[in-house]
């Protein structure tokens, strides 16, 4: 029944003559727990990150792939990118898209999680089935949505017109003012399952006694929600929002398949601009600049997150 392990065995009953050596060996063991993950992450994330930063200062074009030369061109890439109107527009679009998506996904995910935490027939089944939008690869769901949102032949407009909710077909994807909204809506649809699952799990962990106590005190449902549910959910909420932020801000495949960045660049985000610069214009240096901006924004956000949750990260809590 005893298994051989890779870590050095820690004998508790050593002589008191070598406490220091024991302590340092203990620390070593502890670090060994974390080491594989750390090394892996340095290799798979750290290295690309560094490479990307370096590339943003280089003149990196198709020729580089053949000759291996990527001469440093100082801040040329940076000035070119920051001076492009498309970049500033995409910053704004990214902000709108991210905030809109997060808000929508979170609110709806929470509402659904709360709704489904009541026991009724089909609740378990419905919860499982609602995860399906998340399972379909983004490439495919975007293509399906593109068809659904088609101005003239799309099902959504047909429905709206038949129900007399609109008299003119809504230009979901063909109008610059509506296209970004459509992208947000599709992203919300994609993100609800993830939010719902995690928030539901969090809701399950809240002890029933707290709710009972609150109802004994005569608190109404909204008050209970505000004073008990939300505070108890705080750690889960932050996890969901942080992870959601990180993945939404660099969104690419959804937009590419849904609108291609159009019409008239109205749905260009930082992710799509990076893609366009690197893989269509084949100017990898400039593409790297936008990529770095993305990473910087995420880093700032991460710092805020860590500060806000300082207590959770105190030594070995």
């Amino acid at each position: 029944m005893s298994t051989t392990t890779a870590a050095p065995a820690e004998s508790v009953a050593t002589s008191p003559a070598a406490p220091a050596r024991r302590a340092s060996r203990a620390t070593l063991t502890r670090w060994l727990f974390v080491a594989p993950a750390v090394l892996y992450m340095l290799a798979f994330f750290g290295y690309p990150l560094v490479r990307n930063v370096v590339m943003s200062f280089q003149h990196y074009t198709p020729r580089t792939f053949f000759t291996g030369e990527a001469p440093f061109n100082g801040l040329d890439n940076w000035t070119a990118v920051f001076g492009d109107k498309l970049f500033t527009e995409s910053l704004w679009h990214t902000a709108v898209f991210t905030l809109g998506s997060l808000l929508g996904q979170f609110v709806l995910g929470l509402a659904l999680a709360v709704f489904f935490s009541r026991r009724f027939r089909l609740s378990g089944f419905a919860r499982a089935v609602l995860l399906l939008p998340w399972l379909v690869p983004m490439v495919v769901s975007s293509v399906v949505w593109r068809k659904l949102l088609d101005q003239d032949t799309g099902v959504l407009n047909t429905l709206l017109m038949n129900l007399h909710l609109t008299s003119e077909p809504v230009p979901w994807l063909s109008s610059p003012s509506v296209a970004l909204l459509s992208a947000v809506l599709v992203n919300i649809w994609v993100g609800i399952p993830f939010n719902m699952v995690i928030l539901y799990g969090g809701l399950q962990e809240i002890p029933r006694e707290m709710y009972e106590a609150a109802s004994l005190d005569g608190a109404g449902p909204w008050r209970t929600f505000r004073s008990i549910t939300l505070p108890q959910l705080r750690p889960v909420i932050t996890v969901v929002l942080v992870l959601g932020f990180m993945s939404t801000i660099k969104i690419l495949d959804l937009i590419l398949a849904l609108t291609g960045g159009g019409p008239a660049d109205s749905t260009q985000t930082l992710g799509t601009v990076t893609y366009q610069l690197s893989f269509q214009q084949l100017d990898f240096g400039q593409g790297a600049v936008v990529g770095n901006v993305l990473i910087l924004i995420s880093a700032v956000f991460a710092v805020f997150y860590l500060r806000a949750n300082r207590s959770d990260f105190a030594e070995g809590k």
Binding site: D150, Q151, D152, P171, L173, S174, S175, P263
Partner: peptide
């Protein structure tokens, strides 16, 4: 249609 801004050549063919 004003949706031509969203139709690629395949979509045009479908129409």
């Amino acid at each position: 249609s004003s949706a031509v801004v969203t139709w690629n050549q395949q979509d045009v063919n479908d129409q």
